[in-house]
Simulated assay, not measured.
Amino acid sequence: MWCARIMKARILIIEDHPPLARAMRRVLLADGYGVEWVSSGAEFWRRYRAQGADLVLLDLNLGAEDGMDIARDLVANTPVAVIMVTARGKTEDRIQGLDTGADDYLVKPVVLDELRARIRAVLRRQFGAGEDRIQIGPAILMLTAQTLLCEESARSLELTAAETKILAHLMRRVGRAVDRDTLLDGHVWEPGNRTADVHVGHIRAKLRSAGIGCLRIHPVRGIGYRLDVVRN
C-alpha cells in the first residue's frame, strides 16, 4: 500500500538551471511520479497553492530570492517534505538548511540515482512506510495497538483508528502545520464523514483527561493543526 502511494507522489521542483531541472524531471517522470518544474519562488507559490505537492526539491540560489526563506515558510505552514538541492556545500550551509526543518540536503553536482534514493527515503518517512510505532520525545504512538504512551508520566490512552492515524500524521510532521485535507485523506477516513476538527477535538480531550501533557495540538488558522512536544 505504502509503496504504491510513494510511486504516485507529487514532486515540485524549484530550480533556475533548466538543464538540471529537465534532467531531474525526466528521471522522476520515468519513475512514475507526478512532476512539475518552476524556476522562481513566486511561480512556486502559485503552483503549490493551486495543486499542492508531497515533496519539494528546492534550489537555494534563485537569483534575488533565497531558498532558505521559502524553506522556512514551507516548514512553518505546510505538511510538504523538503529536500534542498544546492551548490552550497559548506558544513555551516548544511547545518542551516537542516535546521530550517528540511528533510534532506543534497549538494550539487547531483547524481541522479542518489537523488532518486533520497526521495524514496524521505517519502517512506513522509508516508510512514513499514513502521509500527512513532516516538517524539517522551511520547510513543503504537500504531497497531492504537495506544499513546508518555514515558515521563507513565500514562497511556487508547485511540480510535481514525484518531491514531491523525495523530500519526501530526507526529510525523511535529512542529509543522498539517492541513485538514491531509488529516482526512484516504488513510485517516472512517465511515460517518466526521471532520478533522471533530477527531482532533477528541484527541485533545483524551490527552487532557489522561493527564498527558507531553504533547500539545494547536490550531493553525486557515490551515489545520500543529503538534508540539512539551518538555519539562
Score class of each variant (00 low, 15 high):
Met171Pro: 02
Gly101Val: 07
Asp185His: 09
Met68Asp: 14
Gly101Asp: 08
Arg116Tyr: 07
Trp37Ser: 06
Trp45Phe: 15
Ala23Lys: 01
Leu62Pro: 14
Pro19Trp: 09
Trp45Leu: 10
Pro19Asn: 09
Ile11Arg: 01
Asp181His: 11
Arg72His: 09
Val220Ser: 02
Gly101Leu: 08
Arg25Trp: 09
Gln126Met: 10
Arg88Tyr: 02
Gln96Val: 01
His218Thr: 04
Leu141Lys: 01
Glu158Val: 05
Gly130Lys: 06
Met68Gln: 13
Leu55Lys: 09
Met24Trp: 08
Ala87Gly: 15
Asn193Trp: 13
Gly32Met: 02
Ala210Leu: 10
His187Tyr: 14
Met7Ser: 02
Phe44Lys: 08
Glu131Asn: 09
Leu170Phe: 00
Ile83Met: 07
Thr160Ser: 15
Ile11Asn: 04
Ala42Tyr: 14
Thr182Tyr: 13
Asp179Leu: 06
Leu28Ser: 12
Val111Cys: 09
Asp54Thr: 14
Ala210Met: 11
Leu98Trp: 05
Leu57Glu: 11
Gly128Asp: 04
Ile223Cys: 15
Glu15Tyr: 00
Trp37Val: 14
Asp181Asn: 12
Leu29Tyr: 10
Ala162Asn: 10
Val188Ala: 11
Ile119Tyr: 07
Pro19Val: 08
Leu157Tyr: 09
Ala30Cys: 11
Pro19Arg: 10
Ile212His: 03
Arg47Ile: 14
Glu151Gly: 09
Ala50Tyr: 12
Glu163Trp: 05
Pro19Ala: 11
Gly52Thr: 12
Asp66Asn: 15
Arg180His: 07
Gly67Gln: 09
Val110Asp: 05
Asp69Glu: 15
Ala196Met: 08
Ile14Ser: 05
Thr78Tyr: 12
Gly101Met: 09
Asp73Gly: 06
Gly63Gln: 12
Leu141Phe: 01
Arg221Asn: 00
Arg216Gln: 08
Gly222Glu: 04
Ile119Phe: 02
Leu227Trp: 03
Gly67Lys: 11
Gly67Tyr: 13
Leu141Gly: 03
Ala154Lys: 10
Ala196Ser: 11
Ala76Tyr: 12
Gly89Pro: 13
Val38Tyr: 14
Ile134His: 01
Gly192Met: 04
Leu167Thr: 02
Glu190Ser: 11
Glu15Asp: 03
Val229Pro: 06
Ala50Ser: 15
Met7Trp: 01
Gly175Asp: 07
Glu158Ile: 00
Arg94Gln: 12
Leu12Gln: 04
Gly63Ser: 11
Gly67His: 13
Leu227Arg: 00
Gly222Ile: 05
Gln126Leu: 14
Val220Trp: 05
Arg204Asp: 03
Ala53Asp: 05
Asp31Gln: 13
Thr182Gly: 07
Val174Ala: 01
Arg226Tyr: 02
Lys206Leu: 05
Val110Tyr: 06
Leu20Asp: 03
Asp16Glu: 10
Gln146Val: 08
Ala9Lys: 01
Arg221Ile: 02
Gly97Pro: 12
Asp185Lys: 07
Asp54His: 15
Asp113Cys: 06
Arg204Val: 05
Glu163Tyr: 03
Glu163Asn: 01
Arg221His: 04
Asp104Val: 12
Asn193Tyr: 13
Pro191Phe: 12
His187Arg: 12
Gln135Phe: 00
Asp197Tyr: 05
Gly137Ile: 12
Val111Arg: 14
Gly137Cys: 13
Leu112Glu: 00
Pro191Ile: 11
Trp2Gly: 14
Asn61Ala: 15
Arg124Lys: 10
Glu163Ser: 05
Arg88Gly: 02
Arg172Asn: 00
Leu207Pro: 00
Ile217Tyr: 03
Asp185Trp: 10
Thr86Asp: 06
Gly192Thr: 07
Ala21Arg: 03
His169Thr: 03
Met84Tyr: 10
Ile223Tyr: 14
